[in-house]
Design a protein around this nucleic acid. Structure first.
Lengths: 334, 334
DNA sequence: TTGAAAGCGATACCAC
DNA sequence: GTGGTATCGCTTTCAA
């Protein structure tokens, strides 16, 4: 079978304790013996078995990451952040995708726990009570990341959605828009969707002569945006800008406009929210709020590692700065 | 600390062997005792430690996946295939991204080996000799997946690039195009890029009155396509279609056309290769060759699991069918 | 059908 | 400095 610490010890003519010491640099070993051991290790190609090591040290150097779908570019960005920072501290990622199946989410929580991960990051739409119960039982660091819902009880990393939405609306206002149609998704009061609406409404109230409408799409997908656009152009008149609560909806709207020869931004301005990776490469380039997904992932795992190292932690909820990406899909009206 | 099999045994008043037996259903246990044990497990919330289990059984139920960048949508698609099929057989994914760093690739190979993964899937551009050496040492199933290079020595899953490229070219020909510009990337003879060119040339030779040109972009990115488009429209005349060797280049070309008021497909047809997830949502919708990335991942891990189960294996190289996706970016010329 | 005991491959404590 | 050994939590003979 594969070579073990015993083989190294036997061939080098020392005890396994000594071998362990040179591998881990845990205690002084005489130079000659150290060299001898190192030579043998090199020679027979010994590689320590991390499983055995984990069993005694209780350190698996594994962080479990549960996501809805790694195919979503914003989630992929978060996972990149998680992975890159994790690697800096020798942590690896055990990845599980649920594809929206809440039961799977719970199952994977248990699975990861049994696999002895040292921390769990859950990227999901909502944090339901079963998951809460579960995580409360486990005594490991946990961070919840979501593009949709807000919660105060567990560690999370996010941006100020109200602020961001306010700023986006005011930006449109600054371009001269007063008839703005907000395209969002109906969610409950604690959702991030509601916060975006709050920001939008606050900015609307702030503004003289503002005439704003809110329309809800059936979901968050590109097709939902497309379908919504059909209704919008049928039901409303006079609006000069559509503010979509996320980029996917905006892409749907843009596609609808393309198919119906409505020019963006000449005929109408369209803005989004999120800055998922593709939109900077679309034409016209979409004006949107850049949510720092990579950083969100990075900060999330950094927090877990801090907790693991028992370093002092900031408050549960980390608010990261956002950025208003002004691009070509929005224009001053004359 | 956490509850172990010992606790269960003690509380249930049986030996740990018995507990192990009911957990694994490995040997008959009397109904009363089984119930008793199950009750205790439920009551104290015992969850077997997979690490300890792995140490003795040698089965980690972990597959290592090394990718260049999970942010690439085609890689994300492959990983989805890998993960979903893996889960069907209780396998989990240990994910590592190299971001093109070859040294990291090697490092992660070793890391995964030490973590006792049962198989490795490498998604990368090329399979260099260091990696080959490394994998030859490890005695675990290995599959190499690439969108760029071809190799015969290790298991892989792919499509017939020559065929696909031939078919695409012939499709353009069938639309009446005779002046076709192929936009590719210069690579060595064994690359998949060369195969696409081979297919293109074969179809060109096949066709009466064909006037084809080949132009090379600097790389595979959207920006490379954009830059290449600048040169193309300066250097060549008369072409009616641009056949891009991958979708990213095609998007770059489309963006250039948008910025320069060149209409697709009215002024020119543009086709791609790959069918990465975003292109079906772009406008105009891109005609392209659909490479079944999800299936490639799925077949790859299926092969590894078969090997692990010592089931009979097909040949090393699995060729999957491709599909010519006819969409709006290509049009019959009149 | 059940229990005792020997490992799996490492770490870590305790002597020397 | 170095070696012996208990231990981590579990599976798996081997006897009973």
């Amino acid at each position: 079978m594969s070579v073990t610490i015993k083989d190294v010890a036997r061939i080098a003519g020392v005890s396994i304790s000594t071998v362990s010491r040179v591998i881990n640099n845990s205690k002084p070993v005489s130079p000659e013996i150290r060299k001898k051991v190192l030579d043998v290790i090199e020679e027979i190609g010994y590689k320590p078995n991390e499983i055995a090591r984990t069993l005694v040290t209780k350190k698996s150097f594994l962080i479990g990451v549960i996501v809805t779908d790694i195919g979503n570019s914003y989630i992929a960005d978060m996972v990149r952040g998680i992975e890159e920072v994790g690697k800096m501290y020798n942590y690896d990622i055990l990845l599980c995708s649920t594809y929206g199946d809440k039961a799977a989410e719970l199952k994977y929580m248990q699975l990861l726990n049994r696999k002895q991960v040292e921390g769990i990051i859950l990227v999901s739409d909502v944090l339901n009570s079963e998951i809460r119960e579960q995580i409360d039982k486990y005594d490991i660091p946990f961070v919840f990341l979501s593009r949709f819902s807000h919660q105060e009880d567990y560690a999370t990393v996010t941006i100020d959605y109200i602020d961001a939405s306010y700023e986006m609306t005011k930006y449109l206002v600054s371009l001269g828009h007063r008839n703005i149609l907000y395209l969002g998704v109906k969610e409950d009061v604690n959702s991030l969707e509601s916060m975006k609406i709050k920001g939008f409404e606050r900015a609307s109230t702030d503004t003289e002569g503002m005439n704003s409408n809110i329309h809800f799409a059936k979901g968050y997908k590109i097709e939902d945006g497309y379908e919504a656009a059909k209704e919008i152009f049928k039901d409303y008149n006079d609006f000069t800008a559509i503010y979509c609560s996320n980029d996917e909806l905006a892409i749907g709207v843009m596609n609808y406009c393309y198919d119906n020869k409505i020019r963006i931004p000449d005929d109408i301005s369209v803005v989004g929210f999120g800055d998922i990776s593709i939109v900077s490469n679309l034409r016209p380039r979409l004006t949107t709020i850049k949510i720092p997904f990579y950083d969100i992932g990075a900060v999330a795992i950094r927090r877990i590692i801090k907790e693991l190292k028992k370093e002092p932690l900031e408050e549960k909820c980390t608010i990261l700065p956002f950025h208003l990406q002004k691009r070509d899909s929005s224009i001053k009206i004359t």
